[in-house]
C-alpha cells in the first residue's frame, strides 16, 4: 500500500500540468498565504493594542473560544451558499475559503500576541516609561520585540491550521492539494487520496521549518537564551525540527 502511494507520487505524469502536483501545491500555498496575511493584519494590531492598553480583554477570550468552535466545512458551505448568487464564480468560491481560513487563524495569533505583550517583564516596561518613552515607543521598542517568541509561535500554529484546513477549498470546486483527496475519494483512488494527505503534511512541515528559521532570525538572542554566536547552534535547530516532526504526528 505504501508502495502504491510512492508509485503515485513518483509518477512524473502526476507532477506536471494544471492538474499536477506542482500546480496544486502553488494553489494551496496561495490560499494559505493570502489567508495568513489577512489574519495577521487583523490579529497582530488588535492583539498589540489590547495587550498594550489592557482595553477590550473580553474580546480575547470571546473571539478565541467562539472562533475555535466553528466547524470549518459547515461554515464554508454556508458562506458559499450565501455568496454564490451575488458574486462572479471565481470570487464566490475563493472568498468563502479565505474567510474560513482567516477566521481559523485569527485566534492563535490574537491570543499569543496579546499574551506576549501582557507578559513582558513589568520592570522593563516601567523602566521604559521611566526613561521617557511614549506609549507607542514602549510598544514598538520594548513590548513587541519581547513578545516576539510568543507572537511567532502563534503565527506558526495559525499557519499549520490554515495549511491543513485549506484542503476544504476542494469541496467548493477550488484547486489546492485538497483536490487529490476529494477526487481520490470520489474515484475510489486510494493512493491518490493518501498521496494528497501526505503532500499536505509535508507542506505544513516545510512551512513550519521556514517559520522556525524566521523566528531564529528575528527574535533577540537575549530572549531565547541562545547566547553563543558559534558552535552548538546547529545542534539546537536539529533538535527543534525533530520536535516539530514528532508533535505534528
Amino acid at each position: 500500500m505504501i508502495n502504491q502511494i510512492i508509485d503515485w507520487l513518483t509518477d512524473p505524469a502526476h507532477w506536471s500540468g494544471t492538474e499536477g502536483i506542482v500546480h496544486r501545491l502553488v494553489q494551496h500555498l496561495e490560499y494559505s498565504a493570502i489567508s495568513l496575511v489577512i489574519a495577521a493584519l487583523i490579529a497582530l494590531p488588535l492583539g498589540m493594542y489590547i495587550g498594550h492598553t489592557g482595553k477590550g480583554t473580553f474580546l480575547i477570550a470571546g473571539i478565541a473560544n467562539s472562533f475555535r468552535a466553528l466547524p470549518s466545512l459547515g461554515l464554508l458551505t454556508l458562506i458559499v451558499l450565501v455568496m454564490s448568487g451575488s458574486l462572479p464564480f471565481s470570487i464566490a468560491y475563493l472568498l468563502p475559503t479565505v474567510i474560513v481560513l482567516v477566521l481559523l487563524a485569527i485566534p492563535p495569533i490574537l491570543t499569543n500576541t496579546y499574551a506576549g505583550i501582557q507578559n513582558v517583564d513589568a520592570e522593563a516596561r516601567d523602566a521604559a516609561y521611566g526613561m521617557g518613552m511614549t506609549g507607542g515607543q514602549v510598544l514598538t521598542q520594548v513590548e513587541t520585540p519581547c513578545a516576539l517568541p510568543l507572537i511567532i509561535s502563534g503565527i506558526r500554529s495559525a499557519a499549520l491550521q490554515i495549511i491543513a484546513t485549506a484542503t476544504v477549498a476542494a469541496y467548493v470546486s477550488l484547486g489546492g492539494l485538497g483536490r487529490f483527496v476529494i477526487d481520490g475519494l470520489a474515484q475510489q483512488d486510494f493512493p491518490q487520496m493518501a498521496a494528497g494527505a501526505v503532500l499536505v503534511a509535508v507542506l505544513a512541515l516545510l512551512v513550519d521549518l521556514v517559520l522556525i528559521a524566521v523566528q531564529r532570525f528575528v527574535v533577540s538572542r537575549g530572549l531565547t537564551g541562545r547566547y553563543a554566536r558559534t558552535t552548538a547552534s546547529s545542534d539546537v535547530i536539529e533538535a527543534e525540527s525533530v520536535n516539530t516532526l514528532s508533535t505534528a504526528r
Partner: peptide, 8 residues
C-alpha cells in the same frame, strides 16, 4: 531590579 531590556 534594574529593569533592563532583556532583548537588547
Amino acid at each position: 531590579h534594574a529593569g533592563l531590556f532583556p532583548h537588547r
